[in-house]
Nucleic acid binder design. Structure first.
Length: 420
RNA sequence: GGUGGAGUCGCCUAGUGGCCGAGGGCGCACGCCUCGAAAGCGUGUGAGGGGGCAACCCCUCCGUGGGUUCAAAUCCCACCUCCACCGCCA
């Protein structure tokens, strides 16, 4: 969400953002509604003031005067009710549109309608070369008895999987390693609810835009979150934090659920695109300073890169285009990891700065040293998301005899084993 | 799941229809006092929206949403959350 005052003063910037992000939002309608709304607000305020003085007169009046006042009030009351209804209507429509206002993307973002316009900033590491025919992760996992697909689908439908044996231990190792690394960087581990209410989904910007991507449990008015970010922002929604508490750094862990409606019948095989997965998420809540959040963005990105380097994986860092970054984002960098079976890079991490767009929705503020209340900046990036990252580890570190070399950083979590 | 109780300005609390335009205490800030501090005394101390060039003014908010009334923190209804006890349960 943007500041109404900003929209009023910079309508063109908002229209440009709508255009480069490929959105459908009538900014002029929004401006008109905003104007109407303020006019109505003024009229209601005036009427309300009259009503208050009315009630006061009434309290002091004798019975005869009261009878008169009652008659006068009745006419006036209709008017007030009518104004209130009008205000409620425009207010409702206005907030609907406000929830659709995009963040203004940073000037360095490539302009383009989708990921085809993304720009690769750097490639780190080299894809492995095999002197044997490598298996894809699905074949390898099945060969080693590390996953159940057919049986899992009996239980949970398409895209379902069950990890088995050493692959479970590897998943745990990857998560433990990521959490430990983040703890050394003063990120507090938080295990958050994945089952969430509507408010935090609106607060983070997942709703109303991505409704079809989210599992809903209507009996209980709950949803399954697609990322820990939902709960992490939600934890502080509505609060006014003391600036001394910032920056807040969380390593959020949670199961993540995605309906993958937009990707129906893509990547249905294996562990690349699943409905339920596990993620360690990096999250930062900091003061509303562009330089400050830019520094955190760089650090979140660097940490993710460090993780991939530690895991011995080859990756590329991408500057995401305006049309790919999503409504709320100021800047987004994806990290794509090399998958031998695909012969290309696939997204494993996504690093985003939202400026105060998310904080405005979640009403998440802080009091700065001068006592001024401001909306905070929020940022997030994947640390590790499995099983997609496990698939990368299997494929990149496989040996000729169907084993997988364990990256050194994971060995302490696997009883020192070099191979699984 | 059942029964009972509760949710007020950072914290504690007063407040059963008009004097609440929300009182008090704690905390905090500033001032006085002091060599300095503590104590004491005094003053101030929520958020959001709107109007005006401005000093300033107005409106909304007492968990949330409805309702009753000329008038609601206060009465009614629903929901949310918390507490206690009972039942069930990984």
């Amino acid at each position: 969400m943007l500041d109404k005052r900003f929209i009023r003063e910079n309508p063109q910037a908002v229209k440009d953002a709508v255009a480069v992000k490929g959105l459908d939002l009538d900014v002029d309608e929004l401006l008109q509604l905003d104007q109407d709304n303020r006019k109505l607000q003024f009229e209601v305020d005036e009427a309300q003031a009259r009503r208050k003085s009315f009630a006061k007169q009434f309290a002091k009046a004798d019975e005869a005067r009261r009878a008169e006042l009652r008659v006068e009030h009745e006419a006036f009351d209709h008017q007030l009710k009518d104004l209130r209804e009008q205000l409620a209507r425009t207010g409702e429509r206005l907030s609907e549109l406000m929830l659709l206002t995009p963040n203004i993307p940073w000037s360095g973002a490539p302009v383009g309608p989708d990921e085809a316009a993304n720009v690769v900033l750097r490639t780190v590491g080299t894809p492995p070369e095999f002197d044997f025919t490598p298996l894809d992760h699905t074949e390898l996992a099945e060969k080693r008895g590390w996953a159940e697909f057919a049986r899992a689908r009996k239980v949970a439908g398409e895209r379902a999987y069950a990890l088995v044996g050493d692959l479970v231990m590897l998943e745990r190792a990857v998560h433990s390693y990521a959490l430990d690394l983040l703890r050394t960087r003063e990120f507090t581990p938080v295990a958050v609810p994945a089952l969430v209410r509507e408010e935090p989904l609106i607060g983070t910007g997942m709703l109303p835009k991505a409704r079809e991507e989210i599992y809903a449990i209507p009996e209980d008015d709950l949803y399954l979150a697609g990322t820990a970010e939902v709960a992490l922002v939600g934890l502080h929604a509505g609060e006014i934090l003391d600036a001394a508490r910032l920056p807040i750094r969380y390593a959020g862990i949670s199961p993540c659920f995605r309906r993958e409606i937009g990707s129906a019948s893509r990547d249905v095989r294996g562990l690349l695109r699943v409905h339920q997965f596990e993620k360690v998420e990096q999250f930062v809540l900091c003061v509303a300073d562009e330089a400050e959040s830019a520094r955190w963005h760089a650090e979140l990105l660097a940490t993710a890169e460090r993780i991939l380097t530690d895991l011995g994986l080859c990756y590329e860092v991408v500057e995401c285009a305006t049309g790919d970054m999503g409504v709320g984002k100021f800047r987004m960098n994806d990290i794509n990891t090399w998958f031998p079976s695909l012969g290309r890079f696939r997204e494993t991490h996504s690093c985003s700065t939202l400026h105060d767009w998310q904080a405005r929705r979640a009403n998440l503020r802080y009091r700065d040293s001068g006592g001024t209340i401001r909306f905070a900046h929020t940022l997030n990036n994947t640390a590790v998301a499995t099983p997609r990252l496990l698939a990368a580890l299997l494929e990149n570190h496989q040996t000729a005899d169907g084993a997988v070399r364990v990256p050194e950083v994971l060995r302490p979590y696997l009883g020192g084993r070099e191979l699984i």
